[in-house]
Every structure is written in C-alpha cells, then in structure tokens.
C-alpha cells in the first residue's frame, strides 16, 4: 500500500466565498459600532458628573455634523445588529411550546423584531416628552 498523501486546502478568505459568511461577518462587525456607541453614552454620563458645562459640551458634540453622522450610522448598524441576532435567536434556545405545539423559528424571530420595534418607538416617544 502506498503512503497516503492528503491535500489540505487553505482557509484564507473563507468568508468572501459565500454570501452567508459575509452576512455573518457583517453581524460580527456591528459589535465595533455598538462598542463605540457605548463609549459615547459613557462619555455623556461622565460629563453629567463633571457639571453643567461639561454636559453641555457633550450635547453640543451630539448636535455637531460629525455627531449626527455617527448617530445615523449607529442607527443603521443597530437595526442590522438587532435583525441579524433575532434571526439566529431560535437556534440558541430550547424548544418553546405554546398550547402543546412547538413555536416555529419564524414566530420567535418575528416576536423578537416586533418587541424591538415597539420598545424603540416607546423610547423615542418618551424621550420626546422629556426633552
């Protein structure tokens, strides 16, 4: 018997070879903007503790062109982040039974997205009333 000479193919660029993997990488990449937005909110809280002038400086940055662009980009990225994670959510949960029947993946994803939309609108309305 001859010796086996198997061939191992390289993995370089694996995520560019399939649209499914590109969507996956986009989902993972949204974490960077989520992190940056978290820093922005942290900056706001720290400014609040540092007095009125500091807090007004933070508010002014939010209203600056760069601040507005960043917030619009964040909004789009958060929407994709939310949607993509609710798509994978049914795969991360034990089976959910409603009235003895197993809830479909589409129903779980749909419920998640619906709750996210309702909560976001509620927060938007509440913020409008407070300001």
């Amino acid at each position: 018997m001859s010796a086996r000479r198997t061939y191992v193919r390289p993995m370089e660029g694996w995520w560019t070879r399939n649209p499914f993997f590109m969507k996956y990488m986009a989902r993972e990449a949204t974490a960077v903007i989520v992190y940056l937005y978290g820093l922005l909110l942290t900056w706001g809280i720290v400014s609040l503790g540092n007095g009125e002038a500091a807090f007004n400086g933070w508010l002014a940055w939010l209203k600056s062109p760069l601040g507005i662009v960043f917030q619009l980009v964040s909004l789009a990225v958060f929407a994709y982040h939310t949607w993509s994670w609710f798509v994978i959510m049914p795969k991360t949960m034990p089976p959910v039974k409603v009235g003895g029947k197993r809830l479909s993946n589409a129903a779980i994803t749909g419920t998640g997205i619906a709750v996210a939309i309702v909560m976001s609108l509620a927060a938007f309305v509440l913020a409008g009333r407070l300001s």
Binding site: N18, F20, F21, Y24, I88, P90, K91, T92, M93, P94
Partner: peptide
Amino acid sequence: AVGYCSEVCPKLVDPANAVNQ
C-alpha cells in the same frame, strides 16, 4: 453561532440549536 450548519443539513437536523442549547 454562524448557523450555516443548520442551513445545509439535508435531514433538517438543527445542529446549531444543539450546540447553543
């Protein structure tokens, strides 16, 4: 949680669900 395993399964098993549970 790439989830592609469950997409390609010809017997409609959901391996991603087993892993994540």
